[in-house]
Design a protein around this nucleic acid. Structure first.
Lengths: 153, 153
DNA sequence: TGTGTAATGTTATAATATAACATATTCTGG
DNA sequence: CCAGAATATGTTATATTATAACATTACACA
């Protein structure tokens, strides 16, 4: 993602936090920026490494606290199946999202398919279940990687 | 689950493995049995503890190898969001399954809703994505726990 | 019965995540 | 502005989850 696009996302995040009366502190902001700029999922320890540039001596709690905050605010998502975190592509409205995770190239696409959302809700309700956090991650091969390997797989 | 029901599931697993020409060794069998009997998800290290009864000096690879085998054979599932494993309720046909995980009591219900399965497949296909392993876990509150807390939440 | 493959044993360590408590910063009401 | 509360960060240690690497054993089957 180019510098301008990153700045746009960061500005939006700042606005959202101001509106909500929560503090997007420099550390939190830095972690978000790193995730946005990476354009792919990063592990907490990847982030820890990258923080060395801007924070003196970062320890695991530093990054985990920032990640917790950013997840609470819906600015990032955690990918449970690969222990990694990604910037959210549309943080305006609260949502869970569904993720297509390519095992070949590591790229992740976030989608929000109404049919998926609705059918999941229905499946839960049928059992009297109240969903707080849906985890929907499809592990597989993205279009690009399938084509690169002559359409099979 | 009562002893008889456990034996039924174990017998079915043995049949399946025999048909497939794979070996349900005593250790693998024991791990499966522990998961079936528990009726709730167990972590790898929970299992490691429980193995001390039947295996002399079990180490982590012992249990992880058994879990890998059982997952390959579709006899158990891994719950990514809580780092735990559960016995599969219908291992006859290969499937991924969707899980309702209660954060209050820890109970897990496995469902296989056709609408969910289809909508997920469609969502992937729309992006040219080939799904190998869908991870669908709904974290929330089960009917029993909602009722126990006078229907709210 | 030998020989290759699959399974297990064993030790060490990697990778992910949190506990606990000290310090610093920011916010709010007086 | 100040005191006290609430929030955020620093720091050290440790818990939890998972795998690497290599030795040994068991099994399959020609």
């Amino acid at each position: 993602m180019n510098e301008q696009a990153i700045q746009r996302v960061m500005a939006r995040a700042e606005t959202l936090c101001r509106e909500r009366g929560v503090r997007l502190t420099p550390q939190r902001s830095r972690v978000l920026q790193l995730l946005i700029a990476a354009e792919k999922p990063l592990s907490a320890y990847d982030l820890l490494e990258r923080l060395r540039g801007s924070v003196k001596n970062p320890a695991p709690p530093t990054v985990y606290r920032a990640l917790d905050f950013l997840m609470e605010q819906g600015l990032i998502h955690k990918l449970e199946s690969i222990h990694a975190y990604v910037g959210c592509t549309h943080p305006e409205h609260p949502h869970a999202g569904q993720f297509l995770i390519c095992a070949e190239c590591g790229e992740v696409a976030e989608v929000e398919d109404p049919r998926v959302t609705e059918s999941l809700q229905a499946a839960g309700q049928a059992q009297g279940f109240r969903t707080h956090r849906p985890v929907v991650e499809l592990l597989g091969t993205c279009a690009d990687c399938r084509h690169a390997k002559n359409r099979s797989d």
